[in-house]
């Protein structure tokens, strides 16, 4: 008796991971240089830093679009099977697991600082000697506008929640609604609505990024709120910056998906790439909601 096995496609060796690593390397070097441009004692060129960063971002965009292109072509050529579909789902779940752990670490740092480290420095609980011996004049408050060590310049102000942060929250919430509209349109086979809703989602995401860039320049130029202006600045830029990177990646993914929607690649029965990307966009939106509440409001 013979058993018929399902065909399993094994792709050829891929060069995209190493291309991505090179892109990340340039981004890391570019960002590290950019941070030091305005620091006294460092001879770092702004133009070179931006150039390095630009090379890194370009390589990443090239990698993401090229890699997606390969996968899409393999899919369209009918090389994939049910087993491959399960592999994609496994890949998605591990990717999301790593993302959840990533943001949990940064949110955890914020909560630890606010709930433990700062109150202890302020002498709370069993730590009165900590206050007396380290910085006796320190007042624990949040946002921290008076760093305990005067060596580190404190920010003059922080960004109020009701300006750009509220606007950006509205933009991302609306984009969550438009991607849901697109999702529904795909399920019921309304292609025009699908394309229109996808376009709106991308436009909202890019507008969000534009406002975030404006907010950062305002923080650096006018408020003295920088990555090294104490623990508030550090956590603020780490959390919102990494979220911004995720919005950038999500926008690139959405643009690829829009192109595929325009080509009519998805059907109501075959659209895992669409649903995975839509879910990722919802995830990024919920992370922002957490940031809006815990960084800007409470």
């Amino acid at each position: 008796m013979t058993t018929k096995h399902e065909r399993y496609y094994v792709p050829a060796q891929s060069y995209w991971p190493i291309v991505g690593a090179v892109g990340l390397f340039f981004i890391a070097i570019g960002l590290a240089n950019l941070i030091h441009v305005f620091q006294p004692g460092y001879d770092t060129s702004l133009t070179k830093s931006i150039l390095l960063l630009g090379v890194g971002v370009s390589v990443i965009i090239f990698m993401v679009s090229g890699w997606f292109n390969h996968v899409i072509k393999e899919n369209m050529a009918g090389l994939y099977s049910a087993q491959m579909d399960r592999s994609f789902r496994q890949g998605m779940i591990w990717f999301i697991f790593s993302e959840v752990m990533f943001f949990a670490a940064f949110f955890g740092a914020l909560f630890y600082i606010r709930m433990f480290a700062l109150p202890w420095l302020g002498g709370e609980g069993s730590k009165p000697l900590t206050l007396d011996l380290l910085w006796p004049n320190f007042v624990a408050e949040w946002p921290l506008l008076n760093n305990p060590d005067p060596k580190y310049a404190s920010p003059n102000e922080v960004i109020p929640w009701h300006g750009i942060p509220l606007l950006n929250t509205t933009l991302l919430l609306t984009s969550g609604a438009t991607i849901t509209w697109a999702h529904w349109a795909l399920k019921v086979g309304k292609r025009l609505q699908l394309n229109l809703a996808m376009f709106c989602t991308i436009a909202l995401g890019l507008t969000f990024l534009g406002f975030q860039i404006y907010e950062y320049s305002h923080a650096y130029m006018d408020l003295g709120l920088t990555l090294d202006s104490g623990i508030y600045g550090s956590t603020f830029f780490m959390l919102t910056g990494f979220h911004g990177l995720h919005v950038t990646l999500g926008s690139i993914m959405l643009i690829v998906i829009l192109v595929r929607c325009l080509r009519g690649s998805f059907t109501a029965e075959n659209h895992f790439a669409f649903e995975a990307t839509a879910w990722y966009w919802h995830f990024v939106d919920v992370v922002w909601l957490g940031l809006f509440i815990f960084v800007y409001i409470l």
């Binding site: 789902r89 998605m92 919430l173 969550g176 849901t180 529904w184 659209h271 879910w279 919802h282």
Partner: peptide, 30 residues
């Protein structure tokens, strides 16, 4: 929504419904 995305067939609408609930709750929260 993620669970249904992993477990349900592509024709299922449960992921979509979960994400609709998510958007609704977010609107209420804001």
């Amino acid at each position: 929504g993620l669970y249904f995305l992993m477990k349900e067939p592509a024709s299922s609408k449960r992921t979509l419904r979960s994400l609709m609930v998510r958007v609704g709750f977010t609107f209420v929260l804001i």
